[in-house]
Design a protein around this nucleic acid. Structure first.
Lengths: 208, 208
DNA sequence: GCTATAAGTTAACGGTGTTAACATTGGCAT
DNA sequence: ATGCCAATGTTAACACCGTTAACTTATAGC
């Protein structure tokens, strides 16, 4: 795998890295196969040896994004239910705010429709699974009401995803003025999900 | 303004309508100025007399979308707080499900960034205002806890927006199996937002 | 060493948004 | 009624884009 003109042995990885950098900085619409090839110093059709088409390359980048998100969520400690739930919600939103362009690609339903890139679908589910596990632990411990797990996780995901999208797109102008918005929102949802037994103690925890 | 070859007097509206139809059916990425011009029977640069560029045309379509969404939300009756809140949440999600491609354009932060099309920003705020008014009414009536209005509306909007996006992009596979998912999610959030005084009576209302 | 194949090359097709330069028309003021 | 101006079209051209076909080169395995 010598570094000759042909077979320089690293094209796939190099394209992936370069494209990921472009997406993170300028968004997926800034990805041009021809421009990428020129930057790397290779002809444009060479990329087709490693990616079926532009969309497949974008799918690979989105997979990287979901894996990065999953790693972030996995780092949230298994603290008592309330902190764990709020912690994972905040970690989710923070990821979106740290990587807005990547996050938009991951959930860009138009540019990357589900069902066409199995590994992408799997990567998304794997990230979601971490969130679901956290909810399940809280529910199993009796902290949450015994509602259907699917309902609870769908609610949690909707909330953090919606908040992420709205903030990174500038729809919530006072997001800067309210740095604790994410925490407040998560807590507000929790108020409706916790079992009545835990209601009194929790409120005391919040405002010491 | 006769219908001669030149000055056929209706180009702006015609382009708008045709483009809107394309977006609704195939999404914003399917919009091609050249193709639009050809369909209408006019040269491509003619469109630039009425739209600064492709993005400006898309912005106009998104404005139409926000106005349609606003009309939907305005049609929700001013029933007692709980029904009004759930009703407007369901109306919001239903709009997104009825017009997924249009909805994606309206909230496509990459293709239509905020701050570049003032009328678009205004249209978005006007739609959001309807949701905020409903929350404010419920809060003023004492049905909701006396929390900051911005926090409550941000939470509500995040939830319905997140749910909309996740369902239309196919991230919640059991959305079909759970037709009452939207209602359940909205109710779950409400559980944490209603004042304690109303808690008992409400639960009785829900399951008759 | 020969050969199959993986991994590059150039040339070309059809498409895109956009601009420049030019042509035609309709409405308004004289 | 006429003449002019601004609005609104036209064609030609530029610089891109994704993608395919046909060809060339180097590597790995027998």
């Amino acid at each position: 795998m010598a570094r000759t003109a042909y077979h320089h042995g690293d094209l796939q990885q190099q394209v992936h890295d370069q494209a990921l950098a472009v997406v993170r900085e300028h968004g997926d619409s800034a990805i041009s196969l021809r421009a990428l090839a020129k930057q790397i110093g290779v002809s444009a059709p060479a990329l087709y040896r490693h990616f079926a088409d532009r969309e497949s390359l974008l799918a690979e980048l989105a997979i990287s994004g979901f894996e990065a998100l999953r790693q972030r969520l996995l780092q949230v400690k298994h603290t008592p239910p309330r902190q764990a739930l709020i912690g994972i919600g905040l970690a989710y939103v923070r990821f979106a705010q740290d990587e807005p362009n990547l996050y938009r690609l991951m959930f860009g339903g138009q540019v990357l429709p589900r069902g066409f890139h199995p590994r992408l679908d799997d990567a998304g589910k794997a990230a979601f699974q971490v969130l679901e596990d956290t909810v399940e632990r809280a529910r199993h411990s009796g902290y949450l009401k015994p509602m259907p797990l699917a309902l609870m996780t769908a609610t949690a995901w909707s909330l953090v995803h919606g908040l992420s999208q709205l903030t990174i797109d500038g729809h919530l102008p006072n997001a800067d003025a309210e740095p604790h918005l994410a925490e407040g929102i998560t807590s507000l949802l929790l108020e409706g999900a916790i079992a009545d037994t835990n209601r009194a103690t929790d409120n005391n925890e919040d405002s010491p």
